[in-house]
């Protein structure tokens, strides 16, 4: 496949990474547990640990990524999300 054709093949689609984390101010017991475990392993001075999740996906319709996040990938009441798009 020539470079030009490969480019055409991906012209519509993008790869997206969606990073989801608990909203600021919401108690994140997972983050707290991780933070609490670190000093025992000799990692001092680590704070504000938040545990979230990463969703990777390919989509032909990047315009709808935000809607997709609001409706399913994240619960906007309790979570913030960031979308990172790469061709």
């Amino acid at each position: 496949m020539s470079p030009a054709r490969r480019h055409d093949h991906y012209a519509q689609g993008v790869r997206a990474k969606v990073l989801i984390r608990p909203k600021d101010g919401i108690l994140d017991p997972q983050g707290k547990a991780v933070e609490g475990a670190l000093p025992a392993l000799g990692f001092d001075g680590v704070s504000h640990v938040r545990v979230g999740r990463l969703v990777e996906l390919d989509t032909d319709d990047p315009d709808r990524l935000e809607e997709l996040c609001e409706k399913l990938l994240a619960n906007p009441l309790i979570e913030d999300y960031e979308i990172e798009v790469s061709k």
């Binding site: 919401i26 108690l27 017991p29 997972q30 547990a33 619960n75 009441l77 309790i78």
Partner: peptide, 10 residues
């Protein structure tokens, strides 16, 4: 309304 989160105790 609202949401259910992981128990405080984990």
């Amino acid at each position: 309304p609202g949401a259910l989160l992981t128990n405080e105790s984990l």
